[in-house]
Design a protein around this nucleic acid. Structure first.
Lengths: 131, 131
DNA sequence: ATTGACCCTGTAGTATGCTTTAGGGTTTAA
DNA sequence: TTAAACCCTAAAGCATACTACAGGGTCAAT
């Protein structure tokens, strides 16, 4: 798959894909005879993951680390992988909790702050978070 | 409360607090006779919210919007607030779902990818996400 | 054979969110 | 009274993550 196709498939700019390659998030694909990049199908999966992880606040560096998780004889032992994943799981748990509390507050505003179309006071997110 | 105290209370640099003030995330506090900023207690709550919202991938601009939610005679009707909160709730739901799927994948890696301390293959996050 | 839609590299520019520096005034305790 | 710890503004610098040139080659259809 050439870069234009991949770009539209995942909704990321061509320049961004080349940037991700430089940053090590996307493996260097093999090239066609004319020098064009030729991506395998699974590049789509990889980039979809990158997009999702970015959405929830991970940096490209963190995403690269997540994508690099693997157990290999030379580089990463099971133990190392376990320590890393455990730490990431903790981070994710925290993120989910923060999101849940913001969600709660917004729901409170959404459902009980306005009866009809009239105005009302004290409908801020901070007061909704408190109670 | 002076800026140094607020800074240590919330774990944000003094310069960052002044930056947030310029960006409109933190209300301009009243000043002491010497010109020093004098923050009310609730600045802490506000900044804690900013930190949490940042953690889960909201931009400062989005956080400012969340903090600005209110129903006032002149500016925002209940209807407008409801539309906005509904959209944000949808975003948050999406984020929680993405986090849950990443969490699932990491848990799979953490619990079943390594039996002991030996090496193993196919322990990547992408393969964990697939199944 | 030439036009439009692709692709390439390399470099510069931009937006966001800080962080540092420069230069200076204030407060408090020894 | 002086030195450390605090505060101020204004402006420059920096890291991250793109985004937009500039200049050029490739391909497919007319």
């Amino acid at each position: 798959m050439k870069i234009g196709k991949l770009s539209t498939s995942v909704g990321l700019d061509i320049q961004t894909l080349r940037y991700y390659e430089i940053q090590g998030l996307l493996n260097e694909p093999k090239r066609l005879d004319n020098g064009y990049r030729d991506y395998p199908e699974n590049a789509i999966t990889r980039l979809q993951f990158v997009k999702k992880a970015k959405l929830v606040g991970f940096t490209l560096k963190e995403i690269k680390e997540l994508l690099a998780i693997q157990v290999t004889k030379d580089e990463h032992t099971c133990q190392e992988v376990k320590v890393f994943t455990q730490a990431k799981l903790q981070e994710i748990e925290t993120k989910i909790n923060e999101l849940s509390s913001i969600k709660n507050a917004l729901e409170k505003i959404h459902t009980s702050c306005c009866g009809g179309n009239e105005t009302a006071a004290h409908c801020s997110i901070l007061s909704a978070l408190e109670s």
